[in-house]
Design a protein around this nucleic acid. Structure first.
Lengths: 139, 139
DNA sequence: ATAAACACTTGTATTTAGCAAGTAATGTTC
DNA sequence: GAACATTACTTGCTAAATACAAGTGTTTAT
C-alpha cells in the first residue's frame, strides 16, 4: 500500500493527498449512498474496480481513518466496512461532485441537479445522519 | 495525453473521470485562488509538479473545456491560461476540499474553517465572479 | 549579438494500475 | 461429513502513469 507524502500545507492539496485518485471517493460513495458494505459489493459496482486495487484502497482508507473494518457477527467469513466521522465530513464534497457531474454529463439528469441544489443541506444531513447512526450501532 | 473513458453513469464517477488525479484540481486552484496564469507560475507552486506532467494536464484540461489557452498580448512568448464556466462550477468543490482539509490537517488553521463555513456562499460567489469577469475581458 | 526568459519535449527510471489466475478460510448442501 | 460454494483477498505479469534530469525552440531583454 502506498505511503502518503504531504506535498504542501494547502488544505486542498492535503485532501487530494488522501483522496486524489480515481477510486477512493467511489468506495466511500458506495458505502455512503448505495449502502454497500462488503468487498464483494464494491467489486460489483458499475465502475468495475480490479481486485488488487480494491484491496489496496480499502487498506489505505482504513489506515487513514476513513473506514473501519470488522468481521460480521453472523457470518465469520464476511467483512463489514463502515464509514467514520472523517468520511461523514466528506458528504458535502460528494454532493458537490454529484451536482457538477450531473450538470456536465451529456446524459446527466437535470432533475437530480435541481433536487440536490434545492435541498442540498437536507440531503447532506440525511447522509451524515445515516453514517452517524451506524457509528453508534453494534449490530 | 490520456484519453478519458467513462466508467459509469454516476455523476460522481463522471466528475472523477476528469478530475480524479493528484494534479488537475490543483492547477485549477492555482488559477482560481492564487491568480496564477502561466506555465512558470504553476511550476513554482509548493506541490512541485514535474514539467511533463504539467504540460500533459494543461493539454487535457484545455481539451476537456476546463481552461483556455492564449498568447499574451504584450509578450508573445508568454501563454495565459484561464478558467472557463465549466471550472467556475467547480468552485463549491474546491471550497469543500478547503473546509475538509483545514479540519483534518493537524497543522490546519481552524480560523479558515470558521470563515469558510460562515461565509461559504459569499466566498463561492466571490471566486465565481472573478472567473466570470475574466471571461468577459479581452486584456 | 548574446544571454535570459519562457513554454514546453525527450529520454529514462520508478511507481502505480489493470488483468487473470490462484489461495485460504468459512458456509452451505446433500 | 465430504464436496461444492462464498468470501476476501494474493500473486504474477503486463501496461500505463509518474518523476527526474536534461535538452530544444521561440521570444525578449541587454
Amino acid at each position: 500500500m502506498k505511503q502518503i507524502t504531504q506535498r504542501s500545507k494547502c488544505p486542498v492539496s492535503f485532501s487530494l493527498d488522501f483522496l486524489g485518485d480515481k477510486w477512493s471517493l467511489l468506495i466511500i460513495r458506495d458505502i455512503m449512498v448505495y449502502d454497500k458494505f462488503t468487498y464483494g459489493d464494491f467489486l460489483q459496482s458499475d465502475e468495475k474496480i480490479s481486485t488488487n486495487i480494491l484491496a489496496d484502497r480499502l487498506a489505505a482508507l482504513e489506515q487513514n481513518g476513513f473506514i473501519t473494518r470488522r468481521v460480521s457477527a453472523e457470518k465469520k467469513n464476511k467483512i463489514i466496512y463502515e464509514l467514520t466521522e472523517k468520511s461523514a465530513d466528506l458528504v458535502p464534497i460528494i454532493m458537490e461532485y454529484n451536482i457538477w457531474g450531473a450538470k456536465y454529463n451529456p446524459d446527466g439528469e437535470q432533475a437530480l441537479i435541481e433536487e440536490l441544489k434545492k435541498d442540498k443541506q437536507k440531503m447532506i444531513e440525511k447522509y451524515q445522519d445515516k453514517i452517524r447512526r451506524n457509528l453508534g450501532a453494534l449490530s
